[in-house]
């Protein structure tokens, strides 16, 4: 049995594929079979079933009943669905750029040859190792409105600042209500206030940017040093080197993180599920949470599958948009 290269050279000097023997083909299929079986059973089959159930009334306990587009039409009238969709769009729109900018900034800083570089890198990566559920519980306590460390540390700062601002407002002739409000400046009730809960969840999304930072860092280290030297010789400053060397060279990595970020932000679940359960007043009800609630808590598998299909479509659309735009700004060397 030939174990050499599967290519051979013909008379014209071109390499052509050697016909694969049946035995080799069978061996190849056999080795790939576990993976293919896994993909078929755990990916393609569930996906197909989800598509089918999205057109059915299905509670898991009774046979599915075909209802056509009813589930999809029902979503249009479902206010919770609209709320979850809007919340997720807001979250994705805020968290994605924030995560990319923060992690890129941190990666650039961590790439600087400074003392204790390894320690700083470890510190940044460490939170990614903490399970998000555990992090959610800890942050829940830290942000507790009565006994939380964040409010405890912030209260005297706000009290002093409020006093100063009140004095200034009073001097400027502001109304009594304004002055009193400034005097009573206090930390918000982070997770119990519908106006604050969403920003808190967006901010806490930064907790696990360690992995994105590491990917950026690897990308930064792949940039040839000669390019920086050439740019320096041409008189480029630090910002110009960042704009004309680092960002273009890093664009494939940025693109990868963008795609992963789009997918991740549309699937946000753990932190809000642990910390707010979608409240207060549905202000942190995200798409995946609503899918879970409809499917697993209310046994409405039809609408849950329909929502999952809509989610898949949105993610595919955004990914396609990202790929389309990539032609203009991603540079592969």
């Amino acid at each position: 049995m030939s174990r050499g290269t599967p290519f051979t050279t013909n008379r014209a000097g071109r390499r052509t594929a050697e016909p694969v023997r049946w035995g080799d083909q069978a061996a190849g299929m056999l080795f790939a079979a576990p993976y293919l079986a896994g993909v078929a059973i755990f990916l393609i089959l569930p996906l197909g079933m989800a598509v089918y159930y999205s057109f059915c009334h299905y509670t898991m306990l009774q046979p599915p009943i075909w209802t056509g587009l009813q589930n999809y039409i029902g979503l249009l009238h479902d206010q919770s669905f609209r709320t979850a969709l809007i919340n997720t769009i807001v979250y994705a729109a805020a968290s994605l750029p924030l995560t990319l900018v923060m992690s890129l900034g941190l990666a650039i800083l961590l790439n600087c040859p400074i003392r204790g570089q390894a320690v700083y890198r470890t510190i940044i990566f460490l939170p990614s190792l903490v399970p998000l559920v555990a992090a959610g519980v800890i942050w829940g306590w830290l942000l507790n409105s009565d006994k939380g460390l964040v409010s405890y540390l912030l209260a005297p700062v706000l009290h002093t600042a409020g006093g100063l601002l009140a004095a200034a407002a009073s001097w400027a002739g502001a109304g009594r209500d304004t002055v009193t409000a400034l005097q009573r400046l206090a930390p918000p009730v982070w997770l119990a206030d519908p106006h604050w809960a969403m920003p808190v969840i967006i901010f806490l999304g930064l907790w696990s940017i360690g992995q994105t930072v590491v990917i950026f860092l690897a990308g930064l280290q792949d940039i040839p040093h000669e390019l920086y030297e050439a740019a320096e010789l041409d008189g480029a400053g630090a910002l110009q080197r960042l704009r004309h060397v680092t960002l273009p060279m890093l664009s494939p990595v940025i693109f990868f993180n963008l795609i992963m970020g789009i997918i991740g932000s549309w699937q946000v679940f753990d932190l809000p599920y642990v910390m707010t359960q979608g409240g207060p007043d549905k202000s942190t009800l995200f798409y995946s949470m609503y899918v879970f609630s409809a499917g697993m808590e209310q046994l409405r598998m039809g609408p849950a599958c329909a929502m999952a299909m809509v989610q898949l479509f949105i993610i595919l659309l955004l990914t396609a948009l990202a790929f389309w735009s990539a032609k203009r700004w991603v540079h592969y060397t």
């Binding site: 507790n144 409105s145 009565d146 006994k147 939380g148 009730v189 119990a192 206030d193």
Partner: peptide, 10 residues
């Protein structure tokens, strides 16, 4: 409401 939420937080 804020006062009640703060109180309940404890």
């Amino acid at each position: 409401r804020a006062n009640l939420e703060k109180f309940q937080g404890g």
